[in-house]
Design a protein around this nucleic acid. Structure first.
Lengths: 147, 147
DNA sequence: CTCCATGCAAACACTTTGCATCAAG
DNA sequence: CTTGATGCAAAGTGTTTGCATGGAG
């Protein structure tokens, strides 16, 4: 079964009805190599000749978040972004401050050691973290060399 | 000389005039153990019987950021926060998701090794990062045990 | 007397809410 | 026919802009 219908089925079991908006949104998120904002999702839908109200998009996001089908990402530019939630795929992002491109960054042991260190030193129980990198992507480094 | 007048002097040299709002804002930030939002700064001013327009506060923040006297922090709750910028004091924060308290976290080697790893593997040149921790502070852990 | 400092109203970007209608199951 | 899906307008939150006045130097 395709990944998209598996996700739809997950929702059907919980009282949600079929919605082609939702189906499309999940498709965009599955296909995208970087997290999408509400606006980008709306634009994608319009590119496919679907014109939902923005409220619908926000509400869809809300449902998908609630059911843990997607993950909310904050890349510090004032809008939230979303990507498909996959267990065992905790990763971070590298955002190019020149062109805005977002790359995913996988880290071997992630921050387990650091989190444990914090918990033992400060008694603060770390439950999650946010780690994003900012800099210049390979391509933009080339361009700036030329200029 | 007090830290506050040193900061004010830094600005005077750059064409800025004396402003008691500014002086107060710097004082709050110097005294605060956690980054302050625009609203919190405004509230502090009002507590001191100063009632600037919010625009003034935002513009003051803008100037202080531009002159690198303060640093902008994003703790993912939709508002920016600010703290005094000190060279050689790069640190992170631990935000209690229960009471909202913010603790500063210093890390030995920070993420140098990780950043180098990324640069060498992906050709993305990392220039900065954002790392914040979320969890439960010591006090809130106690409270939840009681309930 | 020149500019920075400030106020005020309005605009802005992103997101959320209230209320009504439509349609899936 | 119940309840989720959707639209539309309006409100909400944090922040920014335009324009005018006032005061520091």
């Amino acid at each position: 079964m395709s990944e998209i219908s598996a996700l739809q089925d997950q929702l059907k079991g919980k009282g949600y009805r079929k919605s082609s908006f939702r189906e499309n949104i999940l498709t965009y998120l599955l296909k995208s190599s970087s997290p999408l904002s509400a606006k980008e999702i709306l634009d994608s839908l319009e590119a496919d000749n679907l014109f939902p109200n923005k409220t619908t998009v926000y509400r869809e996001i809300e449902k998908l978040l609630k059911e843990r089908l997607i993950l909310e990402i904050d890349l510090l530019d004032g809008k939230k972004r979303y990507e498909i939630y996959r267990t065992n795929d905790h990763h971070h992002h590298a955002v190019c401050t020149s062109c805005g491109k977002v790359e995913c960054i996988d880290m071997a042991n992630d921050l387990d050691a650091i989190e444990n260190q914090i918990t033992s030193k400060t008694k603060f129980r770390v439950e999650s973290h946010v780690l994003e990198f900012f800099g210049t992507c390979a391509q933009c480094q080339t361009i700036s060399r030329v200029c």
